[in-house]
């Protein structure tokens, strides 16, 4: 292997993902199912939260992926801006809807969990609020992709937005923390306090998390392949328009 970057050549990428994707997809399905079944049926109920603790096995992995998908998009965008690897920015584009859905699931499961826990579906808890803000950032990023016709211009501008957005997402995170510990002292009841999570709950959660990560990788690879094909179609169309 001459260079790590060779893997990012569209042709190479299509070749190795064609082989790797089925394996990753099957592994993702198996591991996720094992983790969730273990968590749902083979763990005791929590003495305080009862069966509601089960939602933890979906809530925590989706929430972690929601954040890390953005981080991945940031890195991929940087690689595009610096090294101009097309696959990199297409992977960022591919990850955005996955991250968006994960954010939505994390928000929804958080709300459903919140009902028995706090007696309300929505609390302006700093964490929940941050996820809502993250959701808005995903929306903006995707909307910008949709709005720009030229693929390279879209790639450049969304990457710049991703960079600036990351800084402001981080700022918002701290601002929100500050905002809800300010006047409404003690209102924040953090969703995933791990200190009283015993090993019985923790191991299946780790398995489920691993499964979700695999699922994320599989989805992003699949979507990146689609994006590469779309770019190929675009290139062919351009060629035909010029020739015709």
């Amino acid at each position: 292997m001459a260079s790590l970057w060779e893997w990012a050549n569209p042709h190479k990428f299509m070749t190795w993902t064609a082989k790797a994707l089925p394996i990753i997809s099957i592994a993702a399905a198996v591991v996720t199912v094992i983790g969730l079944i273990w968590g749902f049926f083979f763990t005791p109920d929590d003495y305080r939260q009862g069966a509601t603790i089960k939602i933890f096995y979906i809530h925590v992995p989706t929430a972690m992926i929601a954040i890390n998908a953005w981080l991945m998009m940031l890195i991929a965008s940087l690689i595009w801006l610096i090294r101009r690897h097309h696959v990199s920015v297409l992977a960022a584009k591919a990850a955005a809807p996955v991250g968006l859905i994960m954010t939505l699931i994390a928000l929804a499961t958080g709300a459903i969990w919140g009902k028995p826990m706090w007696g309300t579906y929505w609390e302006w808890d700093p964490r929940l609020t941050s996820f809502l803000i993250l959701f808005l950032f995903y929306l903006g990023y995707l909307a910008l992709w949709e709005a720009i016709e030229d693929p390279d211009t879209a790639a450049d501008l969304t990457s710049v937005l991703c960079l600036v957005g990351s800084v402001f997402a981080l700022l918002s995170r701290y601002a929100v923390n500050f905002w809800n510990q300010g006047l409404h002292q003690g209102a924040s009841l953090s969703l995933d306090k791990q200190e009283n999570v015993a090993d019985v709950f923790w191991y299946p959660a780790l398995v489920a998390l691993f499964g979700f990560v695999l699922m994320f990788v599989a989805l992003v690879l699949l979507r990146t392949r689609t994006e590469i094909r779309k770019r190929r179609v675009h290139a062919i169309e351009l060629r035909e328009r010029v020739q015709g």
């Binding site: 042709h11 190929r232 060629r239």
Partner: peptide
Amino acid sequence: LASQSGDFATGF
């Protein structure tokens, strides 16, 4: 047109 078309139309 045949000779060039960037990353995406070639090698595919």
